[in-house]
């Protein structure tokens, strides 16, 4: 499969291609010093580009089609995963997956948005855009976790809740609202990790928790830069400006207390090295669950409510 290369990655790829070519030719030729020079150049260029990503570039990385998705993480970092299906009311939503698993020594209920990798699987997964039954499935699994005193881990990666006719008929708004309410008072730890796109209510619908983690190259906001551009600028052309204005990246959201921790990604993004990303995330999850599992349920719920109550800035 052809790799997707983002615009700003092109200079790196070009240089890397040149490097590979030179390596192939280097037999019998004395060009080691030149190769070294280019290696150095690639390294510097990478650091230069990836350390100075614009907000829109991070949005592109968050949407990178080679990025690990929820099920990739589940296969990489959990054991004994049993996927559970259905909301018990209507059907099984493929845009949200979930099930029982073990991460290190922790039993968990792990739930996340699921995108597809190609057209066929994207249609199957509805591009990671849940319908109400997805949120209701998630809630059913969380209630089960509560019953059996198992912590919940959620992974957020959605372009939004599905804006369809049937979704409205079945109460998309009610399903999300219900989850916000119930997750606020769930009597087990909830660890939330934004692994890709955190688009508005569709993401938040499984995003209320005790600790909110965000991978380095993700976005999380009330609206996508494109939609924001179309509403406020009345044109789709201002997505870069909208991304800047929305302050939707992890470094923006940490001081605003919307998130609690940034999880570093491999240089160039999570898609560059799945296993390294998985390893880092696994250790972070275990570390977080070690702390959360020591807190008593009542205190946990109270501090969760207090945590969200404190978000926002006003002038009096």
């Amino acid at each position: 499969m052809a790799k997707t290369i983002l615009d700003f990655e092109k200079p790196i790829v070009e240089l890397e291609d040149k490097l590979n070519e030179m390596r192939k030719m280097s037999d019998g030729l004395n060009i080691d010093s030149e190769i070294k020079l280019i290696e150095e150049k690639v390294k510097n260029l990478k650091e230069d580009i990836y350390k100075n990503l614009t907000r829109w570039q991070r949005v592109q990385l968050a949407r990178h089609p080679d990025r690990p998705y929820t099920l990739d993480y589940i296969y990489m970092i959990t054991e004994n995963f049993t996927e559970l299906h259905g909301d018990r009311y209507f059907k099984d939503d493929k845009a949200i997956v979930g099930g029982l698993a073990k991460i290190g020594n922790h039993k968990v209920m792990i739930i996340g948005h699921q995108k597809g990798r190609d057209t066929k699987s994207n249609v199957y997964r509805n591009f990671g855009m849940p319908n109400p039954e997805g949120y209701r499935k998630a809630l059913r699994l969380m209630k089960m976790a509560e019953k059996f005193h198992i912590p919940v881990v959620t992974m957020l990666d959605t372009p939004g809740a599905f804006p369809g006719l049937e979704a409205e008929e079945r109460g998309q708004a009610e399903a999300i609202a219900r989850n916000l309410f119930e997750m606020s008072k769930l009597k087990v730890p909830i660890l939330v990790i934004i692994i890709g796109e955190g688009a508005s209510g569709g993401a938040l619908g499984i995003g209320v928790g005790d600790r909110i983690l965000m991978l380095e190259n993700c976005w999380y906001s009330v609206i996508s830069p494109e939609s924001c551009s179309s509403i406020l600028w009345r044109s789709w052309e201002y997505k870069e400006q909208a991304a800047e204005a929305l302050k939707l990246t992890a470094p923006d959201l940490l001081p605003l207390k919307v998130i609690d921790r940034i999880v570093p990604e491999p240089l160039g993004g999570a898609h560059k090295n799945h296993s390294e990303m998985g390893e880092v995330l696994k250790n972070v999850i275990i570390e977080e669950l070690n702390t959360l599992s020591k807190i008593k349920a009542d205190k946990l719920v109270q501090s969760r409510i207090d945590k969200f109550s404190a978000i926002g800035e006003v002038v009096e």
Binding site: A177, L180, F181, S184, K185, S200, G201, L204, G207, V208, Y220, S221, V222, I223, C228, I231, L232, A245, L246, K247, L248, L253, L256, V258, R304, I305, F308, S309, I311, G312, E313
Partner: peptide, 17 residues
């Protein structure tokens, strides 16, 4: 929109309350 993720969090905040 003009308060970005902070507006989004008001959904969680009011529901939690």
């Amino acid at each position: 929109m003009m308060e970005g993720a902070l507006s989004l969090m008001q959904m969680a905040k009011t529901s939690a309350k």
